[in-house]
């Protein structure tokens, strides 16, 4: 090792302590660092931070959109529930209305039927009264006729007027 270095004209064993190479190394190091710094500062770091910010933005936008959609779903559910409740109320109202209408019609029909029934009953009453009167009259006539015949059979002479008067009086009294 030492032989080779001496052949290469080096006095020291450790290349790190060869001060002749220091300016060279320092110069190229500075060049390298400046180049890396420029590359990073002008191109790489702004680009990466932009990409990261964009990604962050996209992610938060997506989260916000998801939140929005969730909110919309909740709203839609509420609207659906509200519509359902409304429909129920409406249906109940319609049912009540229909019921009331039917009741009214029914009442009218019942009243009409009642009236008709009353009229018919009155008519019947009249007819019965007439029949009864007719029967009474007939009874009178029959009673007078019978009384005349009886009187005639008994041999007593009596005029029709008297007999009629007597029968009428008897009927009135008996009645």
């Amino acid at each position: 090792m030492a032989v080779e270095e001496q052949a290469a004209g080096k006095a020291v064993g450790m290349p790190q302590l060869d001060f002749a190479t220091y300016p060279n190394q320092i110069f190229w190091l500075l060049v390298t660092l400046v180049v890396i710094y420029l590359v990073l500062n002008k191109v790489a770091l702004p680009r990466i931070s932009a990409v990261l910010a964009e990604r962050q933005g996209t992610i938060s936008n997506d989260i916000a959109a998801a939140e929005d959609l969730k909110q919309k779903a909740v709203e839609a559910e509420a609207a659906y529930n509200k519509a359902l409740a409304d429909a129920r109320v409406e249906a109940a109202r319609i049912v009540a209305e229909t019921k009331a209408e039917i009741q009214k019609d029914l009442n009218v029909a019942i009243a009409k039927a009642d009236a008709e029934i009353a009229a018919k009953a009155a008519e019947s009453e009249k007819a019965i009264a007439e029949i009864r009167a007719g029967a009474l009259e007939a009874v009178k006539v029959v009673a007078k006729d019978t009384a005349k015949e009886i009187v005639a059979v008994l041999g007593t002479k009596a005029d029709a007027k008297t007999i009629n008067a007597a029968v009428t009086a008897r009927l009135k009294g008996g009645a």
Partner: peptide, 14 residues
């Protein structure tokens, strides 16, 4: 090796 000489340092830094 002058300060501007391209050496193996230059190569590996490049």
């Amino acid at each position: 090796i002058n300060w501007y000489t391209p050496t193996n340092v230059t190569l590996w830094m490049a």
